[in-house]
Design a protein around this nucleic acid. Structure first.
Lengths: 196, 196
DNA sequence: GTCTATACGATGATAGAC
DNA sequence: GTCTATCATCGTATAGAC
């Protein structure tokens, strides 16, 4: 990957990915042209192909990177044992992580249908690993008699949908602080599955 | 294929909308061409313009129709007074209605950014009316001391996100019946906001 | 490493024949 | 009401100059 002195590749590459992320999130993958991305970065369209084989790879790269970041960040959380504490930790982490990356989240949940089969499979496998992390919390909580969950897979998807929905409306500097949002969502998630 | 002639306007119009709905949901508005829609219906691309001024109007029409259908269906529910019963009714209605229209739901949620400002405003106004229906249930339940909801607007959006998420995974003939899915989601929604 | 120039197919939309 | 033919534009991607 090393390049000659005077090369801008270490700068232009990330800038292309950043521009593509922004534009894909705002207008959708199919609606964004390579010319538009190039203009945003300040290069000609042809120059993009020094950094990506094609437009599809650019999208796949953004989505895979996002999912790997998510998994890595989740893996670095401190280990807890009580299921309720683990669910609280997961919900707060999920809210925090997603609030900070609205564009990447939007793309990751929305452009799946624009991925070629091989790329789709790769992203889906990563997503499933993340969902499995939540499902194992719910299963442990149910087995411990703390959670009332008729179907752990359904509950997993329902909770993730609820938590991810924060990106639909949350804006920095709004009526509610990040900490308030985090707490409210975590409480709702816990109540939704807690035995009553 | 022999040349077709004759008048089919009562049939062709709805078929165009149905084809557009399917294709937009599968591939996204920007990725679908007018020629593709025409081929699906069995006419030439130019013929579409007898039924819609342009592609944008086709999308706006689908989304506005979907939101009006949703509001009309919701308005026809029997009136209840107890907040918990109303929330249960709303959740079950929402699941049922969305399960039956996965394509329209997907478009209504995903293609907002492809609407021109005037069309966007129209669809958003309809969506807000629907959200307001749920929020008033939560407000009444909180005032009656039945619900613990720190912020009714946030809770509204969280519940709708959770319930709408059913369209991400539910498939006819799957492991869980419609009635089971409906019940589990309704219970989770109620528990999420019920005072403990 | 980026540029200009370009290949070449697809796009939304229109005009006029029947 | 639908067809064929067409327009101007834009799409992704590549080749070769500097």
């Amino acid at each position: 990957m090393a390049r000659k002195t005077g090369s801008h590749s270490e700068i232009t590459g990330p800038r292309i990915r950043a521009a593509a992320l922004r534009l894909f999130a705002r207008q959708g993958y199919a609606a964004v042209s390579m010319r538009q991305i190039a203009a945003e970065v300040g290069v000609q369209a042809g120059a993009l192909y020094l950094y990506t084989p094609d437009k599809q790879s650019l999208l796949a790269d953004l989505m895979v990177t996002h999912m790997k970041d998510l998994l890595a960040a989740h893996a670095s959380l401190p280990a807890l044992s009580d299921p309720a504490a683990r669910l609280d930790q997961f919900a707060r982490f999920h809210i925090r992580h997603h609030i900070d990356r609205p564009d990447a989240v939007f793309i990751a949940y929305m452009e799946l249908r624009n991925l070629e089969p091989a790329n789709f499979a790769a992203v889906e496998a990563l997503r499933r690993r993340y969902e499995d992390a939540l499902e194992s919390i719910l299963r442990d909580g149910r087995d411990a008699g703390q959670f009332a969950v008729p179907d752990t897979k359904l509950a997993t998807l329902a909770l993730i949908a609820m938590l991810t929905g924060v990106t639909n409306w949350y804006r920095e500097g709004g009526r509610l602080s990040r900490a308030e949002v985090e707490s409210i969502y975590a409480d709702m998630a816990l109540n939704a599955v807690r035995r009553v």
